[in-house]
Amino acid sequence: MLMIRHSIGSRLLCQTNRYTIEKKDRHWQISLPVDVETASRILDFQDELNIFEVKENEKIWYYSSDAQINFQSKEKQLVILADHKTVYPTQ
């Protein structure tokens, strides 16, 4: 499961099981289909997003420190290029 939260206050902006994460050089490209309304809500806080991949016993925390986030409106696809990744246990 993937969750996108506002880094200040942890407001949940999006939660989905439909996503891909690809390593690209020193970044991680996170792609997910979203509707226009969700994209707008996320882009309002593009400087302040935390992205969590939630697994059974661990969470993986990603963020883009330079707000590299793009909404491809034709494909309704949100693409985030994260430059930070930290894995930590949930217990």
């Binding site: 302040e48 935390n50 925390w61 949930t90 217990q91």
Partner: peptide
């Protein structure tokens, strides 16, 4: 509150 991250605050 269990382990959780913060940034830019």
């Amino acid at each position: 509150f269990g382990i959780h991250p913060h940034r830019e605050a």
